[in-house]
Amino acid sequence: MRDQLVKAMQRNQLVNMMYMAKDGTFSKRRVKIIKVAGDNFQAYCFTKKAKRTFMIDNILAVVPVIHKEREVVC
């Protein structure tokens, strides 16, 4: 999981993640990773509109956000 986070940070890529909070609740977050250090990472969370620190062990899934441009064919 750590390798995926580092790659996303290096590519300046947004990711969607499923995360389990300390109290056991689950949430889906869209984040931009700022820094990976030790067993946690800092990211800007678009859900909360703030910088947050997440524990790597509490991540259940990470999926890169892929933007596809659509063309209008006339």
Rank of each mutant, 00 (worst) to 15 (best):
Ile33Pro: 01
Lys48Asp: 02
Cys45Lys: 00
Glu71His: 08
Thr25Phe: 01
Cys45Pro: 00
Lys49Gly: 05
Met9Asp: 02
Lys48Val: 01
Val62Ser: 06
Ser27Thr: 12
Lys7Leu: 13
Asn58Gln: 13
Val31Phe: 01
Ala8Met: 07
Val73Leu: 06
Val36Ile: 08
Ser27His: 02
Thr53Asn: 08
Ala61Leu: 08
Val15Glu: 01
Ile56Asp: 07
Gly38Trp: 02
Ala21Val: 02
Val36Lys: 02
Ala37Gln: 15
Phe26Glu: 10
Ile66Gly: 06
Thr53Leu: 05
Asn12Gln: 11
Leu14Val: 08
Leu14Asp: 12
Leu5Gly: 04
Gln42Gly: 09
Cys74Lys: 13
Ser27Val: 01
Gly38Glu: 06
Asn12Ala: 06
Pro64Gln: 04
Ala50Gln: 07
Phe41Leu: 05
Tyr44Gln: 01
Ala37Phe: 14
Gln4His: 11
Arg70Ala: 11
Ala50Thr: 02
Val62Asp: 04
Pro64Phe: 06
Val73Cys: 03
Val65Asp: 08
Lys35Asn: 15
Val62Lys: 02
Leu5Pro: 07
Asn12Phe: 03
Lys35Gly: 06
Met18Lys: 14
Val62Cys: 04
Val6Gly: 05
Asn58Gly: 03
Ile66Glu: 14
Val36Gly: 05
Lys7Thr: 15
Ile66Ser: 10
Asp39Glu: 15
Ser27Ala: 06
Leu14Gln: 12
Met18Ser: 13
His67Asp: 12
Ala37Ile: 11
Lys51Ile: 09
Lys28Asp: 12
Lys51His: 08
Lys49Tyr: 04
Arg52Asn: 00
Asp23Gly: 01
Arg29Met: 01
Met20Val: 11
Met17Glu: 00
Met9Val: 01
Thr47Val: 13
Met18Glu: 15
Lys7Tyr: 11
Val73Ser: 04
Met17Phe: 03
Cys45Ile: 00
Asn16Asp: 14
Thr53His: 04
Gln10Thr: 07
Glu71Val: 10
Asp23Asn: 11
Phe54Asn: 04
Lys32Gln: 14
Thr53Gly: 01
Met1Gly: 15
Leu60Tyr: 10
Pro64Gly: 07
Ala21His: 08
Ile33Gly: 02
Arg2Tyr: 12
Arg2Trp: 09
Thr25Ile: 03
Met18Trp: 12
Gln13Ser: 14
Ala37Arg: 15
Asn58Arg: 15
Val65Ile: 09
Lys7Asn: 15
Ile59Met: 05
Lys35Tyr: 09
Thr53Ser: 05
Asp23His: 02
